[in-house]
Design a protein around this nucleic acid. Structure first.
Lengths: 226, 226
DNA sequence: CCGCATCCGTTTCGATACTG
DNA sequence: CAGTATCGAAACGGATGCGG
């Protein structure tokens, strides 16, 4: 059943793969890196994974202590999945894997691109920028709102909105990717139904330009090298 | 056939997993991290992988440019597989995964333990030691000979023997693991058929003690944190 | 022996439909 | 919304065979 086959190998790499080596497992972890997600959020972010596989992986990751299930306070009677501390410790491994995978061309057609992977990319760009912009931004992607806290000491991305953002943006992950690849398209995107902006748009544009300078120059989504 | 299913996801983590995410792929890479290996070496190192799977993975890794096949010079009419530069660049990701997997208890029974994973562990211990010993050691594991070059600037492990080692050791990966966990067993191991030593045994013992101090203290094989 | 191909039983995956 | 049930397709794992 949920019993995954073991490599039966004492090497720590093999032991790690016994836990997170199955198909979709690491992408589920990726989706939880920026905060809790509901089952349906994961389903939208990973459309290639069928519901039974998603359930299997979540149960297994829960069993191994990487993922925890939480009930939200009364108003929202929904459950969310979130990473435990142990699950969060996979961050360096996922970043290293992403850095290695960055040069690989994206698959043909219109590949999927989740809000989380897009935001991870944006955060990575800002963190490696020599002179990052500062500000608070609320970005709505796929019906979910995220807050970007950009400062000189680093950049953070959190789920939920902020009381007083410098600027707001509503769009989809793919459009955001093109905007980081070419920030000059911001005005035309806002003029189209693909995006909508509010607040200090000039500040928003500086955010996109900073991201563009460190890694977004190419069309393909990339994670910056460390 | 060899056509692996794609995640169809533009995220670089997903793109990396499209290449190395299939079962056994990353463990094949691990086995090649210290140098070329023959098909039969890989087969011995990964006894759980059947020959057709091994062939499939090598073909696929070759197709993606991570692995290259080489013919050895005439005396040995055998072929070897080795990592390309691109394949070698997975080292940080594998180290991060190994560091994460280190706390996971080894599977029950007598789990496999390849010479390469043992030597990767030893090298990692030496590299994180604050005051590493220096010397050249030839270690024979599972009928293959490796040279350990330990110096203040770091430690290296290479396939093949050395002209003038300070000490030599012949044993199996599991015994070497126990010797790093408890170097005081060196003498009794040499007295048994499980190990055989030559040259400066005191120097060899200092090597084991250094490894023991940084990560070998527990019974389980571990990779040091960075 | 080495490298690989083929056959076959079992497990896992993926798509759809369905339920609390 | 959050899963469960079902079923065909693919991948995996083990054994065997075959040309160097």
């Amino acid at each position: 059943m949920g019993t995954s086959r073991s490599y039966d190998d004492a090497c720590p790499i093999a032991r790690a793969l016994d836990v997170v080596g199955e198909r979709w497992a690491l992408l589920v972890i990726r989706e939880l890196l920026l905060g809790p997600q509901r089952f349906s959020d994961l389903r939208r972010a990973l459309p290639g994974a069928s519901t039974n596989i998603l359930t299997d992986r979540l149960r297994e990751l829960e069993k191994h202590g990487l993922v925890r299930q939480d009930r939200l306070p009364p108003p929202a009677a929904s459950r969310v999945y979130e990473l435990t501390e142990r699950g969060n410790e996979l961050t360096p491994a996922l970043e290293a894997l992403g850095a290695w995978g960055a040069p690989i061309p994206a698959p043909d057609g219109r590949p999927g691109l989740s809000a989380v992977s897009m935001l991870l990319f944006l955060r990575g760009c800002l963190r490696t920028h020599p002179d990052p912009p500062t500000g608070v931004y609320c970005i709505q992607l796929d019906e979910r709102i995220w807050t970007i806290l950009a400062g000189e000491s680093g950049a953070a991305v959190e789920p939920g909105d902020s009381a007083s953002p410098d600027a707001t943006l509503r769009t989809d992950p793919w459009t955001l990717n093109t905007l980081i690849a070419d920030p000059t398209r911001l005005e035309s995107a806002i003029a189209s139904p693909a995006a909508e902006a509010g607040g200090d748009v000039a500040s928003l544009r500086r955010l996109l330009e900073a991201a563009s300078e460190t890694g977004g120059g190419s069309t393909a989504l990339r994670y910056p090298r460390r």
